[in-house]
Design a protein around this nucleic acid. Structure first.
Lengths: 245, 245
DNA sequence: CGGCTGTTTGATGAGTGTCAACGAATGTGG
DNA sequence: CCACATTCGTTGACACTCATCAAACAGCCG
């Protein structure tokens, strides 16, 4: 079971070694499009996927308004997707962990509606959408996986309450991230979070200062510890409790 | 061009006449799954769709936790989808106008994650999901339409800002609904809104009382008029302005 | 007419955004 | 490796929005 050290080391080794691009050996294939595919089907899928590439922090895979042509999957590291509001301020739409697909919002209008940027040294796979559609014609399970991925996205997006307080919002955010790390084989209780507090605040729709204060409160309550972007969950039960209040 | 009266009358005639079930003659087919299909493909699709049925106000098509088996499309009238929060209070997830698909969030887990309830006398089409997948295998354009519909849903869901004030929230809500009516051939400036203020407040994540006050403010500013569930937009430019502030 | 549900109004306080300033951490160039 | 610049996080004071509670009112249906 990979732990915190391994999580960080994997970011570094990415840089040194050519990343294993085959879905068959990918650590997160069960969460990604290849879920449940036979070897045969997997090979067809691999044939169209651009072998996973490395990006440095702050580089973008695609930008708001560009013509849509490919989906991108996080292979390691973390990305954020953003838009810009009327006043020119960046708004964070979501954070993406390994196995999560970016660019889905471009399908309906042939244009990307967000910008995807690496939050840390990361690697990703590129899937040309038209090729994917071609393969999906022959392998219905791939279509179905696409629908499932998108259905999950819709569900988790709509689930976000609007009417909860800042403390509950942050607690829920931490809980959700924790679960996502867990289902990827990382520790649920301690992980490296390469996101600035400004970005977290923007994502949660609150002021940076408020987030800082709430974080402090949660630490004083000994629910979590947060230092140098390493988050440790000390009291899961209480965290859940707060997230529901 | 149908106007307010026609919008209301269509609700009544539904009750009297057997609703035209054929997608080819449906008023909203260009917004729905049949978009861009040839006659041939359309017939295949129609073959699996349960002819459109009438429901009275307050009846539910499916409920939270039930096994997922079909998608439902609004044919006329309006529906809401809801869940229940930890404290047993109903939370509105979304409102659905003709041509919009309900039940999409059930695909990924084979279970409905919301309850769909008619807000007024309405009619709907039922699409068994497995049959749809079978047809889609033979007609790639149907798959692609599914993806487009879901992509659009993801986009519009993520677009919702969290960090805007109540006045902007309501203005944005009105603007969005107006555009949806417009693209369905109804007037963008005057429409029948069979939603209680309680439900709107729940949807927007604010207290019922706050909504009432804000509505009053918008009326005093002569941006909109709202009486007996008939909403009239008086100043579109100002409305847009407020929605962005 | 009385009972229900949906909407309105007022008073109050808690929670948060905003502004301003500072401290800590990180990155940069010589 | 150090001095500097820049970004990032923290803290305090204050005003304002909004949720909450309580109560009255309006519309609707039996």
């Amino acid at each position: 079971m990979p732990n915190l050290k391994q999580q960080k080391i994997s970011l570094i080794t990415n840089k040194l070694l050519k990343v294993e691009s085959r879905c068959q050996k990918c650590a997160v294939n069960s969460l990604c499009l290849p879920a449940g595919l036979s070897n045969n089907e997997l090979e067809e899928l691999e044939a169209i996927i651009a072998s996973s590439q490395i990006t440095d922090k702050n580089t973008s895979l695609f930008s708001y308004g560009e013509k849509f042509n490919s989906l991108y999957v996080v292979h390691s590291g973390m990305f954020k997707t953003t838009t810009v509001d009327e006043n020119g301020k960046e708004r964070i739409i979501s954070f993406h962990l390994p196995g999560e697909i970016m660019g889905l919002d471009g399908i309906h209008s042939d244009t990307y509606h967000s910008t995807a940027t690496a939050l840390t040294m990361s690697s990703f796979c590129k899937i040309p959408f038209n090729s994917l559609m071609d393969v999906a014609e022959d392998y219905p399970i791939i279509q179905k996986n696409m629908l499932k991925v998108m259905s999950k996205e819709i569900f988790s997006c709509k689930k976000n309450h609007l009417d909860i307080g800042s403390k509950a919002k942050l607690a829920l955010f931490i809980k959700t991230i924790s679960q996502r790390f867990k289902s990827r084989g990382y520790s649920a209780d301690e992980f490296f979070l390469p996101i600035s507090q400004r970005d977290i605040a923007s994502y949660l729709g609150m002021a940076e200062e408020t987030l800082s204060r709430i974080f402090k409160k949660l630490q004083k309550m000994e629910v979590v510890k947060y230092k140098k972007h390493i988050l440790t969950i000390l009291d899961t039960a209480l965290l859940t409790n707060i997230s529901e209040s």
